[in-house]
Write a protein that binds this DNA or RNA. Structure first.
Length: 295
DNA sequence: AGCTCGACCTGCACGC
DNA sequence: TGCGTGCAGGTCGAGC
């Protein structure tokens, strides 16, 4: 589930549940996600007030009263479930549909208990997720975040910026779009969707849009497409894939609006186009596109 | 330096 | 029914 729109949706849910509260306790059902949790993880969180919850690319950054920040990444299959005291569970980014009741599912690795009794359960079957702690002032130089490129929804992303990065590059355009060192937060789904929206082929060598480092006009269109796709997805509450419907409507809905992603063999949705969506593999990842619309 | 690939890990859909 | 295969939204590091 988690690309930028999904992480942003989760962030907003966590803000409602956590901001201003304190950690009363932290329970670890296993201490290794993608890599081991930092030393003293639970003790360093306990008693801390949650001052703010931000996002950098696909990372969630929780600023704590004691001067440290909790950096978290959901990997491929991570999600949070908020279990209110005496209330029902509310999933934030659900997948593999289990443990929504907070009853202690097989892959519930970390449980944050807040001072109002709310439990925030981190579930992650594949354990590609990550959690680390570092001084709040050092978040941007942390090894996980220091090489990240520009935020796609910030004003640093521009056609000129892309042109500089793409000049003389022979890699396919799509490969550059999912490179977090260039655009931080764009993943496989939304890169495909943005390229469709911009009418650009994922196979096109990136450098062909930046002759002499100057932006081709189509790059401006691509920037607009990236922002539009991400904003539309955030507005829809993100995408929820291979999932059960959530009882209280926490599931995202954007997956119903995909133009190309996971639509191999289906007709192009652009009015008047009789093309068929094709799937290819680039750098080991599936790419979906309409050969009639994208050049 | 740029690019691709395999590794990490589990679950699910599919075909036989 | 069971088993094998391939696929999945992530990132990283090795090796060409």
């Amino acid at each position: 589930m988690p690309e930028l729109p999904e992480v942003e949706t989760v962030r907003r849910g966590l803000v409602r549940a956590m901001q201003g509260r304190r950690f009363a306790a932290v329970r670890l059902n296993r201490a290794d996600l993608r890599f081991p949790l930092p030393n003293g993880f639970a003790d360093r969180l306990s008693g801390q007030r949650i001052e703010a919850i931000g996002r950098r690319a696909k990372y969630l950054v929780v600023a704590l009263s004691g001067g440290e920040s909790l950096i978290m990444h959901l990997g491929m299959s991570g999600r949070f479930t908020v279990v209110h005291q005496g209330g029902k569970a509310r999933s934030l980014g659900e997948m593999y549909g289990e443990a929504a009741g907070g009853a202690g599912g097989l892959h519930d690795h970390v449980v944050f208990v807040l001072d109002d009794g709310t439990r925030i359960v981190y579930t992650d079957p594949r354990r590609f997720g990550m959690m680390d702690l570092c001084p709040t002032g050092e978040v941007s130089s942390h090894r996980l975040t220091r090489r990240l490129g520009v935020e796609p929804l910030g004003k640093e992303l521009s056609a000129r910026r892309l042109a500089v990065a793409m000049a003389a590059r022979k890699a396919p355009l799509k490969s550059l779009l999912v490179d977090q060192r260039l655009i931080a937060g764009l993943g496989n789904i939304y890169a495909c969707e943005a390229l469709f929206r911009a009418g650009l082929s994922p196979k096109r060598p990136a450098g062909t849009l930046a002759r002499n480092g100057r932006p081709d006009p189509r790059l401006a269109k691509l920037v607009l497409a990236i922002r539009a796709v991400l904003n539309d997805a955030i507005d829809a509450g993100g995408s929820t894939l291979r999932d059960y419907a959530d009882a209280d409507g926490a599931s995202g809905a954007y997956q119903h609006r995909f133009s190309v992603y996971d639509r191999e063999g289906q007709p192009c949705r652009r009015r008047g186009c009789r093309g068929t969506i094709r799937r290819i593999v680039q750098a080991g990842r599936s790419t979906f596109y309409c050969p009639r619309c994208q050049h």
